[in-house]
């Protein structure tokens, strides 16, 4: 089970700020995860946007980055500053 975090507007799209998900074994990297989540949430591409960056275990990564079931993965829209 991976911990998935959705920040900013993606929390509204996902319907939650964080959740524990059983990711299928075929979803092995961040690019595949974007597509899988986007389909799961019927998000119409919100998770595929290039401006949305992914962090794996608090490190921002470049697609496609390998993921494992115990990772914490964050979907990060452009930060808005304080």
């Amino acid at each position: 089970m991976a911990d998935i975090l959705y920040f900013g507007r993606l929390g509204d799209v996902a319907g939650t700020h964080s959740e524990n998900l059983d990711i299928p074994a075929t979803v092995a990297d961040t690019a595949a995860l974007r597509r899988w989540i986007d389909t799961e949430k019927s998000a119409g591409g919100a998770f595929l946007e290039a401006s949305v960056r992914l962090a794996v275990n608090s490190e921002i990564v470049v697609d496609p980055h390998p993921i494992s079931p115990s990772d914490e993965i964050a979907f990060m829209p452009p930060v808005g500053g304080g």
Binding site: R9, P77, P78, V79, G80, G81, G82
Partner: peptide, 27 residues
């Protein structure tokens, strides 16, 4: 730094509803 690059997501609540804010060009 804090206004543009800091890792924050900001939502504004108004009578008309709420919206997530992204940095302004001048920031």
């Amino acid at each position: 730094y804090l206004k543009t690059e800091a890792v924050f997501w900001k939502k504004e609540l108004t009578k008309a509803g709420s919206r997530w804010i992204e940095p302004r060009a001048e920031d």
